[in-house]
Write a protein that binds this DNA or RNA. Structure first.
Lengths: 123, 123, 123, 123
DNA sequence: GTGGTCTAGACCACT
DNA sequence: GTGGTCTAGACCACC
């Protein structure tokens, strides 16, 4: 995984994990890798890995059993709300920004439609 | 103007000014406020105001005449390219992120259409 | 039984057992459950159960007869002292903390009186 | 300041600061010491100091201005709620525990009354 | 000078 | 082996 230098690594990792949860790669209740494993997987410092799980726990995305490990939340509502809020945020700020750049609704739809079908060659 | 704590203030100010240029609120060749005035207008530190103009100049969004002040670029191509690149960046990352959240093309178009017609009550 | 994540489980279990002794639910000399049974009862790891008895033994709350099991102490003084020291500790820290929050003696008494009569609906 | 080895230092520091806010030693809106100063004052590592403020910010006890420092919240409601919730928690758990140790309401009141008037010689 | 992040490495208690 | 905490020291962007 490559990191964007302008965004804290731990946030980028959290984002990656969130998407894995939403896509079902990390099913509910599943044990997450230990902080040490996570550190290896994502090539980050163990402390940063700890921070990732701590932050995620505060967002109720996972929970911890003492001495056992960290587990994906078992509450489907949390996942749904997470997906919804991420989408809402992306959508709102995108539409607002594009409006301010003077794009019309039709232009937006056309551009998105075109872009959607291309593979993600570049970002 | 309210600032997002996670994004450098000078970038947020530059963004605001870019939009004003694109929307024609700041026509080409127009004199921009002095750094001191900018600092007052945007409630930022004078040092931050200086930085704003410095960065903008590096992006050729404006130019400085010694002793006279700072002026909006008079090259239309700069403005067009600016708008295009901002839009491209917004579009690409938006589409990619929404794809990763599992949104279909149709869903995207519907949601954008809906959102576009609402006023920007909330962000 | 629900566990507070910030306090070691074995301490929470010991506390529960202490109260059972004081309240007479576990009379002096009574045989305590085996560590395996304890583990099941309290939904804890067998190792944790072992630790519970080990700590309790160090505090003379119980004693072990090889091959027979673990038994509640038969020394009434131990129980009395246990109750007294628990109460003393609770009282002292409680009063000190509330003082620091600016509570007056009268307020304390009123609040305690009120709270005492309510059932422990919530903690 | 002396630290209880069984409680995370950052929590003990937060607690101390909370009380200072409640007692008015740290008025609303006041600038808090920088993380580096805090580290010196409380004899903790700068990182631990950072953690203190971050945790406090999540509880809305303070806010940060980029590059300027950290400030006590200006919302009185936050302080009142903080004091109330701390007191409620202390009160509830104290009463419940003492009940379980078999103390009567009258005993409690007497003991608290006595204890309240003694100076905090010992904890 | 300010907070924010990250690495490195250590120690601890709990399971 | 697990997460939790702490120290130490470094670098960064921002004001």
């Amino acid at each position: 995984m490559e990191y964007d230098n302008n965004i804290p690594i731990y946030l980028q990792v959290i984002n990656r994990i969130k998407k894995d949860m939403i896509q079902g790669n990390l099913p509910m209740g599943e044990k997450l890798p230990s902080t040490r494993e996570l550190a290896v997987q994502y090539q980050i410092n163990p402390n940063t890995a700890v921070r990732v799980y701590k932050e995620m726990e505060q967002q109720h995305m996972c929970y911890t059993k003492r001495g056992l490990g960290t587990f994906v939340t078992e509450d489907p509502a949390v996942l749904l709300e997470m997906r919804a809020s991420m989408a809402r945020e992306l959508l709102n700020s995108f539409v607002q920004e594009m409006k301010e750049l003077g794009f019309s609704k039709q232009e937006l739809i056309t551009d998105i439609s075109t872009r959607f079908d291309e593979e993600g060659q570049e970002d």
